[in-house]
């Protein structure tokens, strides 16, 4: 089974920092960048392969299709079972975290800024 990583955020600075952190944490990893939920959705539907799992770093507030919209949209596809999503947000609103827990695909909730150093 292969693993593909998607970085989904409209903020280039955040993408920049994600890339740096990934380069350090998982040096050999490949990733795909999407600027909003709709681009990410289009990518995984177009390149859907049953032997691939997706690890998605998903921002909440984005233009066109936000993080919640993306989560709702993938429920219609069988691909949802192969998506592993980590919500990444600067929000400190607990409501966002509670809402994220309602989606089975969400495996983590990170508040930026963050690093992969042990806490």
């Amino acid at each position: 089974m292969k693993l593909e990583i998607l970085l989904v955020d409209d903020d280039p600075t955040v993408i920049f920092m994600h890339k740096r952190l990934l380069a350090k944490s998982i040096p050999a990893s490949n990733y795909v960048v999407a600027n909003d939920g709709s681009q990410a959705l289009e990518y995984i539907i177009t390149n859907n392969s049953t032997d691939t799992n997706y690890l998605i770093f998903l921002d909440i507030n984005m233009p066109v299709l936000d993080g919640w919209g993306f989560l709702d949209a993938i429920q219609e596809y069988d691909i949802a079972a192969r998506c592993y999503i980590i919500m990444v947000t600067s929000s400190i609103d607990n409501y966002d975290k509670q809402k994220a827990e309602e989606y089975t695909q969400v495996i983590g909730f990170l508040r930026s800024p963050f690093n992969f150093k042990p806490a």
Binding site: T13, V14, M17, I60, S90, S91, R111, P113
Partner: peptide, 22 residues
């Protein structure tokens, strides 16, 4: 206001903090 504080204030602040970390 709370939402702005949570999202809009935190977004540039988080970016600044992240950039400082870098």
């Amino acid at each position: 206001i709370a939402w702005m504080q949570s999202h809009l204030v935190r977004a540039p602040l988080a970016r600044i903090l992240g950039l400082i970390d870098v």
